[in-house]
């Protein structure tokens, strides 16, 4: 009997596929929240596996802050065309133009918090009843209690104190009109698992994850990419460094780390030696101890 067991990566894969198929069976209009980051790429890859030989039955939905890495957009469009999937874009710029949200002011202003409104508006407009996300419980402490099937009320809000219990592999996706779900198929994966799996499966990821020369500015204790959106303070200067990114998000707040890991093998090697969490380089999480939790309650990813 000894050969009949799965390695943990295979078990995580099987679990994620099971969850994705439950989404397909239980919801009317589910989408994959696609940020262009490795986690949402992984979820998309798993969805492909789950439904072969059918094509991925979920559109990809991108909440576009307008502050993108150009590489991310190119990658997104290529993937969408390879999959033959539908792309839905929710534009933060449009939310600003329509007066739904106000652009933040000040030195550390970002469009991160504004995404929530655009996300919820797009969900409502498109009548989406389930948004599949790449969130992982190891990312941040507020996520540690997140369910696989996470219920959102008709304001799109998460109530961490009143979550449905989730037992065995029985997922309750029932909802009333106006409510929706967020589903996280890779809840149980860690950053290391994601990298190991990407390497094993040879999954295409944006080149930003590999070390490359880039113009950057030292802000908020990390290397922020220099782009047209960055306003330099008098003491700040643009320098060229060999860096790579551990997460990809809004280009104005996503910090890179100095690295020489320019192949997937080297990245995996480096991640396994890493002494800081990946979100440690994101200015949005540094605002306060409970920054993530507060945003999640509002309806953030």
């Amino acid at each position: 009997m000894d050969k009949y067991y799965l390695s943990y990566l295979d078990e995580l894969e099987s679990e994620a596929i099971f969850v994705l198929r439950e989404v397909y069976a239980q919801f009317q209009n589910p989408v994959i929240l696609f940020s262009g980051g490795k986690d949402s790429i992984l979820v998309t890859h798993l969805a492909k596996k789950a439904f072969t030989p059918c094509s991925v039955p979920f559109p990809l939905m991108h909440i576009d802050t307008g502050h993108n890495f150009p590489e991310t957009i190119a990658f997104r469009d290529q993937l969408v065309s390879n999959l033959g999937a539908k792309l839905i874009v929710g534009s933060v710029q449009q939310s600003i133009d329509e007066g739904r949200v106000l652009e933040e002011k000040g030195a550390n202003a970002s469009r991160n918090a504004l995404q929530t409104t655009t996300l919820l508006d797009t969900i409502e407009r498109q009548k989406i009843d389930c948004a599949i996300g790449g969130g992982r419980r190891d990312e941040e402490k507020a996520r540690a209690k997140e369910r696989f099937f996470s219920h959102r009320d008709d304001f799109g809000q998460w109530d961490p104190k009143n979550q449905r219990p989730e037992l065995w592999n029985l997922f309750n996706g029932k909802y009333f009109d106006g409510e929706h779900f967020r589903v996280f198929p890779i809840s149980n994966w860690t950053e290391m698992d994601v990298w190991n799996y990407i390497k094993r499966e040879n999954i295409q990821i944006p080149s930003l994850y590999l070390a490359h020369e880039r113009e950057v500015v030292w802000k908020n204790e990390s290397w922020i990419p220099y782009s047209q959106f960055i306003k330099l303070k008098p003491n700040e200067e643009v320098v060229t460094k060999k860096i790579r990114f551990r997460t990809l998000g809004d280009i104005t707040i996503t910090g890179g780390i100095e690295s020489s890991a320019d192949t997937l093998e080297k990245v995996v090697q480096e991640v396994s030696m890493m002494r800081k969490t990946e979100r440690g380089n994101r200015a949005d999480d540094k605002r306060s101890e409970t920054a993530m939790e507060d945003r999640k309650k509002q309806g953030y990813f």
Partner: peptide, 29 residues
Amino acid sequence: TDGLRDEREQGITIDVAYRYFTTPKRKFI
């Protein structure tokens, strides 16, 4: 293992939270 804000304020754990670690032998949840 400090969890959500409500819990920190009340000083108690009120819900199941999941943690992860890996050793060369196994992955643990």
